[in-house]
Design a protein around this nucleic acid. Structure first.
Lengths: 311, 311
DNA sequence: TGATTTATTGTCCGATCCTGCGAGGTCTTC
DNA sequence: GAAGACCTCGCAGGATCGGACAATAAATCA
């Protein structure tokens, strides 16, 4: 196990010398590297599995915090705004990890095809969980990373390996959680759809009645499930999407605060500013200035910082 | 609509001159033809969609009878032993139909991928239902049959057309039923798995408790759902599998009644004979003799008759 | 430096949202 | 067949949001 981790770590390190995120030639597979711990910063998780070869990372989602490291993967079933922090990394042993996007459709198909034990409790849970990394799982990821050396094999072999990974996750200790969100028709799955919709339409003002209807639940039930999955109310979730996007617009497109606020759906800059401060700790201009300075110190371009945050 | 049906009818007729079942080059697609009405005879349905271009057919499942014709398709979600009868066919306007196997995994994937409305009521229902044929659905089947003329296109085009068909079924009036059985983790889906297992292992003596455990329900709940889906108790279901297989063994492999009965799991030929009569109306030898005669009259080989029954 | 523009903070208000609770229904179990 | 678990729904009070307006602070430019 330990030696397998070392091999994976060096494989990852070989591909990502500096910079902290690399989209690889295997669709959906990203590599991560950090040479030192970071401050807590807001980040977005997508439906994916994250594995760490070296170091440790902390994710805060509402009241829960998840820590994952070389022996614990993090599995995420919907897009979730979180606060993330690398807590174990240094120049000799940098944080090295990878993430692989999950396709819920494929997972669902696999659940039906293989006679997996039924998930008795249908109740919603957090859209994120940590589980124990097993050696076979690690080996599968190793093979996936190895594919990068021989890219012509990717289209053929990657799907097979990914299916193996999904299977191992489904039968693993967090399989029930995954099954829940991938089960067509389950509440979690319906909420997942609403979240996808929100991600595309966050600039429109939103009526939660409509969202509830989309998910086929009453408003009150909808609220319950949404919160239990995301730790946020629907409106708070949308707000985070808006503010994050506004931050991106200001940072990379150099928009001023007012137009950014309009762009993401706010009609009053004052309200925008107020809520921005509450989320990011500082009002728009000051926050952006801080970020710019950070990137300047690290001699990194702003886009890269953003990439790290929208991982 | 009427003209579309005529076109489909002649397309089917072109491919199947005589004989009553034809497995086509499109995997899972079968064509059917009958030049005259039949007596009721026992038949097995598999997860599939059946469409009729001309004529009508009756299926009896427990207390329910389903009739389907040019304007009504029959959708089946699990393997079901039934009694079937062609009720509308003659030499001028023979019964012409087709069936397409359904892959529950694909259906499940599609349900997750497309934002389909949630199936509110989770209660189990019969594993079979009729629905109204729409023109787009008919057109899709027409295109599928047309593929038979250009077989090199099959691997590329057939899956697309089948996906369209599945989609139209999902949003059609019987979509909820389909969603239910395809929903990973739903009770119907669990029962479906058990049925698959039974089909492979019907020769072993069976313990209801084990089956129930397989489906993750208590024995009583399992019983309940099984019955509502199949109109049979698990034991009756298994019995039908055994007796049908015994009949096949005697008819095509020319086994004698005793060895056939042992082969399918019976330990006492007398018990076998008694239950055989009850299901098929006549004791083994007499029944087989009758079937042989029928096939002789129709100058068909026995295997073909059987094929009709295990449609 | 002063003028002008832009950003931030404050307060207020109406509308909407959010959460906890109890009733009612369904499914499960014994 | 009855008790029990689970889920959903609707409700009501309290919390929050988003916008309006105004005032102050900061930044930009002449």
């Amino acid at each position: 196990m330990e030696s397998a981790l070392e091999v994976l770590a060096s494989s990852i390190a070989r591909w990502i010398e500096n910079g902290d995120r690399l989209e690889t030639a295997v669709p959906g597979l990203s590599l991560f590297r950090r040479d030192e711990p970071t401050q807590p910063m807001s980040g977005m998780y997508e439906p994916s599995i994250c594995v760490v070869a070296q170091g440790a990372k902390r994710v805060i989602l509402g009241d829960d915090t998840f820590v994952y490291d070389a022996h614990h993967y993090l599995i995420t079933s919907v897009h979730l705004p979180t606060v993330v922090q690398i807590i174990d990394a240094n120049r000799e042993k940098p944080f090295l990890g990878l993430s692989l996007k999950l396709d819920m459709g494929e997972i669902s198909k696999m659940m039906v095809d293989s006679n997996l034990p039924a998930p008795r409790p249908q109740q919603s849970n957090r859209g994120m969980a940590t589980g124990e990394v097993t050696l076979p799982l690690l080996n599968a990821f190793q093979r996936l990373v190895d594919l990068l050396a021989d890219q012509k094999d990717v289209p053929i072999l990657a799907p097979t390996i990914e299916r193996e990974i999904v299977y191992r996750l489904l039968v693993g200790d967090q399989g029930a959680r995954l099954r829940q969100i991938a089960s067509a028709g389950s509440q979690s799955q319906q909420i997942g759809h609403v979240i996808e919709w929100l991600k595309r339409n966050f600039t429109h003002p939103l009526r939660i009645g409509d969202l509830a209807a989309k998910s086929g639940m009453s408003p009150s039930t909808f609220h319950h499930h949404f919160r239990s999955l995301t730790a946020l109310s629907p409106l708070q979730y949308q707000k985070q999407l808006r503010l994050r996007e506004a931050r991106r617009l200001m940072l990379t497109d150099h928009l001023d605060a007012a137009t950014a606020s309009f762009r993401v759906g706010y009609e009053s800059p004052s309200q925008f500013s107020r809520e921005y401060s509450r989320l990011f700790g500082a009002p728009p201009l000051r926050d952006i200035a801080g970020l710019r300075q950070m990137t300047a110190v690290q001699t990194m371009n702003p886009a890269r910082v953003l990439a790290a945050e929208t991982a």
